[in-house]
Amino acid sequence: MIAERTIIVANSVERRVQMLSSRADAQAETGSVIAYSPTEIVRRHFETWPGLKVETVQVKRRTSFEYRFRAPCHLLIAAELSEREHGETLLEGLPRSNQRILTHKLTFVPAGHDFYGSQKPRTLARTINIYIDPQGPLTDPELRFGEIEFKPRLFFYDRNLWETALNLKVQVENRNLMHRQYGEALGVLLAHDLVRINGNADPLSTSADRGGLAGWQQRRLAEYIEEHVSDDIPLAALAQLVQLSPYHLCRSFKRSFGMPPRKYHATRRIERAKQLLAERELPITTIALAVGFGETSSFTAAFHRLTGQAPSRYRRDLD
């Protein structure tokens, strides 16, 4: 029995390592992003989800620089800290701006619009750049996101968009497959809020409440998550499994299971880890990989968050 369990865990670990490698290769392809000049003036980190790319940008020194952008994707910029001695910003469709204090301001560049800026920074700026594919798989068909003619917006504030941008920044800075579904859910909310501020009616926000999931949907989702508990399960894949949009899946799942999909998935991973911890021959590092964690430290943190104990302490208490 122990030998069979060890083989199963080893296969799971191998699959996990291959998945991490594939993910790293995908992240190496940055696609269309803001071009900074000189390029070495900024430090950039990014993360991707289906139809969504998020990067954090840190200006490294107080010397003049420029930036340009035009792409077939939308761009939302959240300036956490940005002040300039002088400079200008041009966004196609809007008047030129020489505004100097840009901290806590948002800018939305619709797909295909020219965007240009220059500045002599007063502070070492920090921004969050969010690139949205108009035809991305996380947007609901009912929303017709790809058909909307979005208006450009320069240096504005919206609380919902701001909070979503900050939450996405956390996902970039704490890369962990446990949070992949959370990033996708944030992408769904982002699309709806962009429609809202654009002045378009959101048909999903006024549609009838679909309530919880049907029995067959609950069973199918629970079984699928259990079978793929160590994998990165895209939100869109779960939605397709039960023939719902990602937006309605998030709402209905929570009503039926009492928690969002990402938290349910995380809980099932920890429950699987508990079973494996009972096998004394399995190292904790091996168990961490087997249940979907790239490193022991993130596994320990997640285990402690849900159980109040470290994995090693939990294993000792089994005696």
Rank of each mutant, 00 (worst) to 15 (best):
N160G: 07
Q27Y: 09
P137Q: 11
A28L: 13
D202E: 11
L244K: 06
T123Y: 13
A302S: 12
H304R: 14
A165E: 06
E226P: 09
T164R: 10
N176A: 14
L289Q: 03
H265T: 07
I287D: 03
D25E: 15
I8P: 09
E163I: 06
E92P: 01
L154M: 07
H104N: 13
K60W: 00
K151G: 05
H74T: 04
R220G: 07
S312A: 13
Q171N: 04
G112P: 08
V57Q: 01
H179Y: 15
E281C: 08
S21D: 09
A239R: 09
M259R: 10
P283L: 10
Q181Y: 14
T103F: 01
F46N: 04
T285V: 09
F145Q: 09
T39F: 15
Y182L: 15
R175D: 10
H179A: 14
V172R: 14
L81T: 12
A191S: 01
Y314H: 13
E92C: 00
H304L: 15
Y314F: 15
E85T: 03
L190W: 01
L143D: 06
I284R: 11
F293T: 05
L282S: 01
R153P: 00
Y131T: 11
R96E: 03
A201V: 04
E29I: 14
H265K: 08
E83D: 00
I77G: 07
K120G: 09
L306Q: 09
R219W: 00
L75E: 01
R316Q: 15
L190N: 05
Y182K: 14
Q275E: 15
E4D: 10
G31E: 08
R272G: 02
R70D: 04
E295L: 05
E14C: 08
K53F: 15
S207C: 03
R272D: 11
N176H: 10
R315I: 05
S298T: 07
E281N: 14
Q217F: 04
K274L: 07
L138E: 08
E163A: 11
L106I: 07
H192R: 03
N98K: 13
A288H: 09
Q27E: 08
V188Y: 09
P234H: 11
F303N: 03
I130G: 11
E281G: 01
G215P: 03
A111L: 02
W216V: 11
A71L: 07
G183T: 09
S37L: 15
R315T: 10
L190V: 04
P134A: 05
P260Y: 02
P110R: 00
Y182N: 08
F145C: 00
S64E: 12
T286Q: 12
P134W: 03
G31S: 01
Y314T: 14
S256V: 00
M178R: 15
R210S: 06
I130Y: 01
I128R: 02
L276R: 05
R251T: 13
P141Q: 02
H86K: 15
L143R: 02
C250V: 12
I197Y: 00
H265F: 02
R70S: 03
V195C: 01
A266L: 14
T267G: 04
L102I: 09
Q181M: 13
S252G: 00
E4W: 06
E4G: 05
V109I: 03
N200K: 07
E279G: 01
A3H: 12
P260F: 10
L138T: 00
L190F: 08
T206C: 04
N200R: 04
F253L: 08
H86A: 01
R315N: 12
R255T: 11
R126E: 12
G212K: 00
